[in-house]
């Protein structure tokens, strides 16, 4: 097995029940993603990019074929194993940030580390590092409602990165941001990708994001339409 391989999909098919029939969201996808990639799944709504991201993130399972993430087959893992994979190796960034509104920036970023049962001194150092990466050390005591959209998304990035995961999955991370904030966020992610060798996989149709991607996987109607490498 290639040690640099983070994700491998083999003939991945996903069907959803729809009325009396079925809807095929993914039609036999074959893909590989290596360590340190900065890659995007690009396509219009309904092309299957979010479904693919869900399966890679062990939030869903394939109907047919195989998806191997960090050496583990998503299709056959238990809910507990899937939770452990997410807890230890994956980071998520959402379009609408999804921060815990009553908790401070510090506490939001600290939360994934609580699940890893790290000591408070370890947590403190890692949270400070993560906030430093995204330039929010001065806002750590503030709560999400006191932050701008760009700042919230930077908190979400810090939360995804704090445990230094191997893979970060970002679903339309700039959809709610203006151009300036989008570029700011993307530059932060590029820097983290380069500094920490974290693999980033985006689901997007935003040109601003696409401009930063080193590999672009175009999806159309559940199939890989083309792949471009910068």
């Amino acid at each position: 097995m290639n040690n640099n391989l983070i994700i491998e999909t083999k003939h991945l098919t996903k069907r959803f029940p729809m009325g009396k029939g079925e809807f095929t969201a993914l039609k036999g996808i074959d893909l590989t993603l290596g360590k340190g990639e900065f890659t995007g799944l690009i396509g219009p709504s309904g092309s299957g990019k979010t479904t693919l991201l869900n399966i890679i993130g062990s939030l869903d399972s394939p109907t047919e074929g195989e998806v191997i993430v960090m050496g583990s087959s998503v299709g056959i893992m238990s809910a507990k194993e899937a939770a452990r994979l997410r807890k230890e190796n994956l980071g998520f960034i959402f379009q609408s940030y999804n921060l815990l509104q009553v908790h401070t920036v510090y506490e939001n970023v600290e939360f994934p580390l609580l699940l890893l049962k790290l000591s408070s001194s370890e947590r403190r150092k890692m949270v400070h590092d993560a906030l430093e990466w995204v330039g929010l050390t001065d806002k750590m005591k503030q709560k999400p409602p006191q932050l701008s959209g760009g700042e919230c998304q930077r908190v979400a990035i810090a939360r995804a990165m704090v445990k230094r995961p191997s893979l970060v999955l970002a679903d339309e991370p700039t959809a709610n941001l203006d151009a300036a904030n989008s570029h700011n966020i993307l530059q932060t992610m590029v820097k983290l990708n380069q500094d920490l060798m974290t693999t980033f996989l985006f689901a997007t149709h935003d040109d601003k994001v696409i401009g930063y991607l080193r590999r672009k996987i175009y999806l159309k109607d559940g199939l890989v339409d083309k792949i471009e490498t910068a």
Binding site: A79, A83, R84, L90, F92, N98, L100, F111, P112, L115
Partner: peptide, 16 residues
Amino acid sequence: YGEIGIRLAIGEEKGH
């Protein structure tokens, strides 16, 4: 729902 969802996504187990 959102909070529970994000906690599950981050890797917290349903039982937890």
